[in-house]
Nucleic acid binder design. Structure first.
Lengths: 173, 173, 173, 173
DNA sequence: GATGAATGAGTTTTCATTCAT
DNA sequence: TATGAATGAAAACTCATTCAT
C-alpha cells in the first residue's frame, strides 16, 4: 500500500468518525489526506469502497481486541477479559470502534455475527461457573458492555475505572 | 398546526428514521408528505429546523415513557417499571425512539441529561432495597437497558419476552 | 391610500434603496412593512408594480426639487438654484433620489427626459449671461452636478459646504 | 488559467454588465460560457468570488487607463490626458468600466481610493497652472468627468466629440 | 382590505465521479 | 501512481406569486 493510499484511509477514518459517512464529502477526505480528489477513486472505486477498505483494515483490530477472550483458558479468565473489553479501547482503536458504532446506526449495518464467538465463550464460562441461565446471563452482560461502550465512545463516561472495578466485583473476578 | 405541516413532520420522522438525517433529502421528504419542497422551509426555516420540530414533537413521547417510573410509589414499582422500559416502545413510538438513537450517533447529540431523573429514582430504589452500591447499580442497569434498547430498535432482538422475564427474575420483581 | 399600503411603499423604498431592487425580496419588504406577503400583490399586482408605485410617489419630490429652477425669474436665479440642486437633497428625499440613481444602473432606466426642462432653462440662463457656448455649458454643468449628486448619495462627499461655496464662486452667484 | 475558466470570466463580465450582478444567475453564466455550472464554483468558490475575479482581472485595465496621466510630464499633459479619460473607454474596456459603475451602486462599493492618485496629479497640475483653488478645481473636474463617464457608459451620450472638444477648449489644452 | 398557507420554478451550491494528461 | 479540470445530477434553500378564507 502506497503512502498516499494509507493517508486516504486514515483521513477517511478520522472524518467519517467525527462527521459521519454521509455528512463527509470525498473532497474533504482528499483535502485532509492531502491528495487529489481523483486518487480516492483510483484506489477505491467509489466512496462506498473507501468505507469497506477502512472496515477491512479494522478487522485486525477487531481480532486483536477479541483474541484474549477467545484464547482464555479458564472461565474466570474469559469473564475477566470480557469485562475489560470496553475499557481496552484506546488510542488508535478508539476511532475505529466509534466508527463501527456510528455505522451500525447510519447504515443499519449489523455486527452481531462478529459477536457470536464471544457470546459462545461467555456462555461456556457462565455454564462452568454454575450460573443458572448461562445463555441469558451472557446476553445480558454483552448488552451491558455494549451500553457502556456506546457511552464511552461518545465521551460521555466519566467514571471509567470506578465502573470497571464495580463490574469485576459484581462478577467476582 | 395545518394538515400539511403535520404531514411534513410525519414524513420526515419516517424517512430520517429509516434513511438517516444526512442521507435523506428535503425533496424526498416533500414528495413523501405530498407537499411542495418550499413549504418545508416556510414552516421550519431549514432542514435542521425540521429535525428540531420532530424532536420537540417527540418530547411528550419521552415524558409518557418515563412517567410511570417517575411517579412510582415503591422501590419495587420503580425497578419493575424501569425493567419494562425498552419493551414498552411500541408502534408509533418505535420510530421516534429509533430516530433518537440514530441522532445520538449521527449528530453526536447528548441525551444523558434526559436520563438523570431516571437515574435518581433508580438509585433511590436500590438504596431502599439495600443494594450495597446503589449508584453504580443504577448506572449498570441503565447501560444494560440502553444496550437492549439499541438492539431492539435495530430489530436485532429476537427473544424479547424471554429477556424481559429474565430481567424481572434477576431483580426479583 | 390605506395605512398598510403606505407602509409597504415606505418599506420598499428603504429596502430597495439600501439593498437594490433585485437583491431585495418581497418577503423582506412584507416583514419590514409588518404586513402579510399577499397584501403586496393585492395592492401592486407584482414586484415591478410596487417599484412603479414608489417612482410615481416620488414624482412630486422630483417636481418639488426642480420647481424653484423652472420658476426662477432671472438668469442668476436659475444658475444659483441649479447649483444648489444636489445640496438640497435632504432627509426623506435622500432615499428617493438614491433609489433613482441605483435604478438608473440596475434597470438601465433613463431619467434624462426628466432633465430636459432643466437643461433648457440652464441654456437660457447661460445665453442671457453671454456664455459663448450656452448649450455645452449647460450640459457640462449638469454632468458636474450629476457627479456630485452621485458622490453625495453614496455618502462619499465630505466637504459639502466647501464645494457648494466653490461652485457659487466659480459661477459668480 | 484554463480556457474554460477564462470563458467563465468573460461570460460573467458580459452578463453581469448587461443584467446586473443579482439579476444574473450562475446558471446563465455557465450556459453562456458553455461550461457546467459546477465548474464556476470549483474555480471561484462562489458567485461573489467570481465577481472578485472579474474585478481583479480588470485592475490592469484600470492601470492602463490611468497610466498616461500618472506618467505625464507637464501640467498641460496631465490636464489634457485627464480630459480624455472618459473618451478613451473603448471596446473591451467599455464592458469592464460599465460593470464598475453598476457595482458602485449595486454593491455600494467604493472606488474613491483608486481615484486618489489621479486627484493628486490633477491638483498638482492646477497648482502649476496657477488656478486659485487647485484642490477644489481638481475635485470639480473629476466630478464632471464622472458624470460624463456615467452618461457615456449608459449609452446616453450622443455628442461625444463635441463634448470632448468643448472640454479641451474650456481648459485651454 | 388583509392574512398566511401553499406552490413551482428558480437560485446558489455541493456532490460523487470521470477523464485527459 | 497521481493530478486537477470538468461534469451532471442533486442538494438545500429562495423567490414571486396565487388563493382560500
Amino acid at each position: 500500500m502506497t503512502e498516499k493510499k494509507n493517508n486516504i484511509i486514515q483521513a477517511a477514518l478520522k472524518l467519517f468518525t467525527c462527521t459521519g459517512f454521509h455528512a463527509c464529502s470525498t473532497s474533504k477526505v482528499a483535502k485532509q489526506a492531502k491528495v487529489s480528489e481523483g486518487l480516492i477513486f483510483k484506489h477505491f472505486k467509489n466512496k462506498e469502497g473507501l468505507l469497506q477498505a477502512i472496515l477491512v483494515e479494522g478487522e485486525e483490530k477487531s481480532k486483536k481486541l477479541f483474541y484474549p477472550i477467545l484464547s482464555a483458558e479458564t472461565p474466570q479468565q474469559i469473564l475477566k477479559r470480557t469485562l475489560e473489553l470496553p475499557f481496552r479501547i484506546k488510542g488508535d482503536d478508539f476511532e475505529f470502534w466509534k466508527l463501527q458504532y456510528k455505522l451500525k446506526w447510519e447504515l443499519e449495518y449489523d455486527h452481531s455475527k462478529k459477536m457470536q464467538p464471544l457470546m459462545d465463550r461467555l456462555t461456556e464460562a457462565f455454564t462452568a461457573l454454575d450460573y443458572s441461565n448461562p445463555e441469558m446471563e451472557a446476553q445480558f452482560l454483552l448488552y451491558t458492555l455494549d451500553g457502556i461502550a456506546a457511552s464511552l465512545l461518545k465521551g460521555a463516561l466519566n467514571n471509567e475505572t470506578e465502573l470497571h472495578d464495580y463490574l469485576m466485583n459484581k462478577y467476582n473476578v
